[in-house]
């Protein structure tokens, strides 16, 4: 499993990808810095809705994770190297765990760095807020990694399908339709943030921290299982 993890990290951490992800990760930090340095700075609620929920949880985090997780298995199908991994005695679930873990590790510096830096700037160096934002972002990161790893294996145009999901589901519908909210990663990330620091998203209705954390575990387990199943049943090129 460690070998697959190492191979995948090397495969994913290309120079070009790191530069692009670095720019994406810096975007919320720059916007937060501009917002907080302006004399007409937005309220905390506005900031949470626009930057933390709208930008971080629904755009930057999923975009970064999509660009990494969807290719962790998807590219192996495209360049036919997947056979190298499946023609081994390694159980398929271990392969999937290694792939998701590698995606999380490669994406983490950009996603968590961006989230921590943003909250540090926005909440005046408040340690509780920093922990809450970072933990919620970490949960979102793992959930998205699990979903997008499956997507990369299940759909040939995974990036396109993932972008549609991010824009329409996480970005648009989950913000307006209350039923969909409970089916979006963004919603549970906000609930975890609120659970760890009740001052965050104080005005919005939330499920409890325990439920949000449980849902995160279920999402990761469900998509991990689906990916394993797909990997076992598919014809490997």
């Amino acid at each position: 499993m460690v070998t697959v993890f190492r191979l995948t990290v090397r495969q994913l951490a290309t120079r070009g990808r790191i530069v692009i992800l670095g720019v994406l990760g810096l975007l919320p930090v720059c916007i937060t810095w501009l917002m907080t340095s302006d004399s007409t700075a937005p309220s905390v609620a506005e900031y949470e809705a626009v930057v933390l929920s709208g930008m971080m949880a629904a755009s930057i985090v999923p975009l970064i994770v999509l660009s990494i997780a969807s290719v962790s298995l998807g590219h192996e199908v495209g360049d036919r190297t997947l056979a190298n991994l499946v023609l081994t005695p390694l159980p398929r679930w271990k392969l999937v765990v290694a792939k998701v873990a590698a995606s999380v590790v490669v994406a983490a510096p950009f996603v968590l760095g961006s989230a921590a830096w943003t909250s540090w700037l926005a909440f005046n160096h408040d340690a509780t807020a920093l922990v809450a934002v970072s933990a919620a972002t970490a949960a979102a990161l793992v959930m998205y990694a699990s979903v997008f790893t499956w997507l990369g294996l299940a759909v040939s145009q995974a990036i396109g399908a993932g972008l549609l999901y991010i824009v329409l589901w996480e970005g648009l519908f989950s913000g307006f339709v209350s039923g969909i909210r409970f089916m979006s990663v963004r919603h549970y990330a906000a609930a975890i943030m609120h659970g760890l620091d009740p001052r965050r998203f104080a005005d919005a209705p939330h499920v409890s921290l325990a439920i949000a954390a449980s849902v995160a575990v279920v999402v990761v387990a469900f998509f991990g299982w689906r990916t394993t199943l797909r990997l076992s049943r598919m014809d490997v090129p």
């Binding site: 036919r80 190297t81 056979a83 190298n84 090129p237």
Partner: peptide
């Protein structure tokens, strides 16, 4: 396999 499935960075 028939295909040259390698990892060019290794």
């Amino acid at each position: 396999s028939e295909h040259e499935a390698i990892y060019p960075y290794l």
